[in-house]
């Protein structure tokens, strides 16, 4: 097995890791927040939102 074969396996492994991380976070987010909150974005309301924006630590 040369470096290129190892890179192939590494690419498969990283793809699975990134994919699983997204899916886990997706599941966690959807089960933590209500659908009304998640889909509460409205076009044209951003300026009002920006006024409530707080810079966190």
């Amino acid at each position: 097995m040369d470096i290129w074969n190892m890179l192939e396996y590494a690419a498969w492994g990283l793809s699975i890791l990134f994919g699983l991380h997204m899916i886990y976070d997706w599941y966690k987010t959807d089960s933590t927040y209500s659908e009304d909150v998640l889909t509460s974005s409205r076009e044209g309301e951003l300026e009002a939102m920006a006024e409530h924006h707080k810079v966190g630590s």
Binding site: D2, I3, W4, E8, Y9, A11, W12, L14, S15, F18, G19, H21, M22, D25
Partner: peptide, 28 residues
């Protein structure tokens, strides 16, 4: 690049999949 370094017949699929999933993760 693999061909230039003397390795022929590399499987391109893992690199195709990684580029799409890594960038989607970054966008996420």
């Amino acid at each position: 690049v693999a061909g230039m370094s003397g390795h022929s017949g590399i499987d391109q699929r893992p690199f195709i999949v990684l580029s799409i999933i890594f960038l989607a993760w970054l966008n996420y």
